[in-house]
Amino acid sequence: MPNIVVLVKRVPDTNARIVVSGDRVDLSAVKWVISPYDEFAIETALQHKEADGGTVTALTLGPADSDKVLKDAKAIGVDEIVRVWNESWNELDSNAIQSALAQAVTDLGADVVYCGKTAADTGAGSTGPGVAERLGWASVSNITDASFAGGITVTTPVEGGSAKVSVLGNAVISCDKGNMKVRKPNVKGIMMAKRAQVNVVSADAPASSVTIVSQSPPPAKPAGKKYEGGSSAEEVARLLRDEANVI
C-alpha cells in the first residue's frame, strides 16, 4: 500500500494586502494559510489513499509557526504531520529547500509525493520538479485530474490540448485546480488535529547561493487614457496600432 507524502507550505492569505516596509515585505499583520494549490494536492493524496489504501503524510519545511498549516492538513484528513527544520537555517534558496525536502521524503520512505503547482508566495513552481530530480523520480506538473484505477493516471496540459499520462514508478505530482472540489475539515477532524503531534525532523541543506537583496512594491503604472462610450473603441484600436505598436 502506498506511502503517500503531500508537501504543504504556509503562505499569507491570498487576499491579504502586502505591505512593504523599508526594503522588506512586512508580513506581521497577515493571516497565514495553506497555499491554495496545496489544498488540491491534499485532496488528490486523500483520493489516492481511498483508492489504494496506505497512509498520507503532510510534510512542510519551516520553523514552529508552520505547525498550524500541518494541523489544518490533519483536520482535512491526512494521517501524519511532519515538519523538517534546522535551527541554523535562515532564508534558504531553492537548492537548499529542495535538498532538505528530498532528504525528508527519503527518510519517510515515500512512494509518491503530491504538491501544489506553485506556492502562492513565490509563484515559482520549482519545488515539485526539483525534489523529483533529486530523488531520481519522474515528475508530472500542473495536473488537472487524477485517477487511480490500475495505477496513477493524470491529466496534464500539453501544447494544443491536454494529455492523459500514466505514471510509472515513483513520482512527484504537482496539482492545479482543474475541476477538483476540495473537502473541508469537519468537527471531528478539527478536534483530532488539536491533539495531533507534529513530528519534527532534521535534514542537511547546502549553503544558499541566491540571497534576497530587497523587496519593493510593484512599479506604479502611469495613468492610462480613458474614454466614454463604445464609439471610442475605434480610437483605441488606432492607438493600439500607432502608439502601442502591439497589433
Binding site: 534558496d93 531553492s94 537548492n95 537548499a96 529542495q98 513565490t122 509563484g123 515559482a124 513552481g125 520549482s126 519545488t127 515539485g128 520538479p129 526539483g130 525534489v131 523529483a132 530530480e133 533529486r134 515528475s139 506538473s141 500542473n142 496540459p157 501544447e159 547546502p206 544558499s208 547561493s209 541566491v210
Partner: peptide, 21 residues
C-alpha cells in the same frame, strides 16, 4: 509552464538554485 518545469529539473540535477519569472 513547461520551460520553468524543465529548468527546475536541470537546476536540481546540477545542484543549482533557480530564480523563476
Amino acid at each position: 509552464p513547461q520551460s520553468k518545469d524543465v529548468a527546475a529539473r536541470v537546476a536540481a540535477r546540477r545542484g543549482l538554485s533557480i530564480v523563476q519569472d
